[in-house]
């Protein structure tokens, strides 16, 4: 439970930390699209090269970055197993009923796994190098056009930043409740799945109640500091584009061009 590294900011002063959050968000979106545009390993190699550069320039420890993949290991193995077992191909190694293990299936599953890993790594680079406040400012700024159709963009952004800010607080709270229930004889170690699910309830109920109480108090504290919805607020941190953002945009353009070129000229899938 303590290892909720996904979505956690890593404080450092690096090229990436100083980028405008809007640029980082758009870069991430472009990166995700490009990963799906790539139809061969060369394309993924271009993405991986850019990602490695990003990681190196971010000054976030590599171990910490790789840890974010841990959360999806199960998903990776599961999809890989499905693809290996059921993907039809020409070079068949083993076939029985609907199960068909082929060279193409294995290659395809590796390809998909790589895509997923790149996706998660790039997304966590965004959250490692961007504070929740900057991130929500970025989202708010990018969603500004929606204000014209009366979407409460600012309120949504604030909800998002408070949710992110409460991750460590609620993690601590969960740990506390878990210990309290253990002290009262709760059993969280059972191997029986039904019992395991049942054991979550004595944690969830107090956690929910405590979260509601916290929300109530936070609401009071925010009101006491003159927060009222609908009133025009100003921003202390103003987003401004610098030469770094221009570099990022150029890298992004190169990434898109690189992947498109590999797709066009080295088209053979995988």
């Amino acid at each position: 439970m303590k290892d909720v590294s996904f979505g956690q900011y890593y404080p450092a002063d690096s090229f990436l930390h100083r980028l405008d959050p809007r640029v980082k968000l758009l870069f991430l979106i472009a990166f995700i699209v490009v990963i799906f545009v790539a139809t061969n390993f060369y394309g993924l190699a271009v993405c991986a090269a850019v990602l490695i550069a990003i990681i190196l320039f971010s000054r976030v420890p590599v171990g910490k970055v790789l840890r974010s993949v841990r959360g999806i290991v199960f998903l990776l193995l599961f999809t890989a197993a499905l693809n290996v077992l059921f993907h039809k191909g020409d070079t068949v190694y083993y076939q029985k009923g609907i199960i068909c293990i082929s060279l193409e299936g294995i290659i395809f599953s590796v390809f998909l796994a790589l895509r997923l890993v790149l996706l998660v790594l790039c997304s966590s680079m965004l959250t490692y190098t961007t504070t929740p406040v900057a991130l929500t400012d970025g989202v708010e700024s990018l969603l500004t056009p929606l204000k014209w159709i009366f979407v409460p963009v600012h309120a949504l952004a604030l909800i998002m930043s408070i949710a992110l800010r409460f991750i460590p607080t609620l993690t601590e709270e969960t740990e506390r409740i878990k210990n309290a229930q253990l002290a009262r004889g709760a059993n969280f170690e059972s191997r029986n799945l039904i019992k395991k699910i049942g054991a979550v309830i004595p944690i969830l109920v107090p956690l929910l109640l405590s979260a509601l109480r916290k929300a109530d108090e936070l609401g009071d504290a925010m009101e006491a500091r003159c927060y009222t919805s609908g009133v025009k607020r100003t921003k202390y941190k103003k987003l401004t584009l610098t030469w770094r953002d221009l570099v990022a945009v150029l890298v992004c353009a190169a990434l898109i061009a690189g992947v498109v070129l590999t797709r066009v000229f080295l088209g053979a899938p995988y």
Partner: peptide, 10 residues
Amino acid sequence: NQTVATIVED
């Protein structure tokens, strides 16, 4: 329960 932001100055 009264801190809104992650960073002190924010």
